[in-house]
Amino acid sequence: ESPATSILAPAPSGDQKQMLGERLFCLIQTMLPSLAAKITGMLLELDNLDVLHMLESPEFLRSKVDEAVAVLQDHEA
């Protein structure tokens, strides 16, 4: 049992995204301060379980953030 999944159990689905977003934002802010709001927003569109995986795995988080940055740059090009 992981601490991360335990935070989701009692929460309605909307609140789950909120909690995941708060945690995700904190992590991404340390990596990409200027893009944290957008990257977090993009990654929150993924399944909650994927987001949980990001919170628990720095390597997975990094890979998804890199993907999101690439998509964002392509979108803004």
Binding site: G14, Q18, L24, F25, A37, K38, E45, L72
Partner: peptide, 22 residues
Amino acid sequence: GSSINWPPEFHPGVPWKGLQSI
């Protein structure tokens, strides 16, 4: 460039609405 509202931005303390239609 276009100014469509994407991606949605998440800000701590602000209720997340995602891509739900406004």
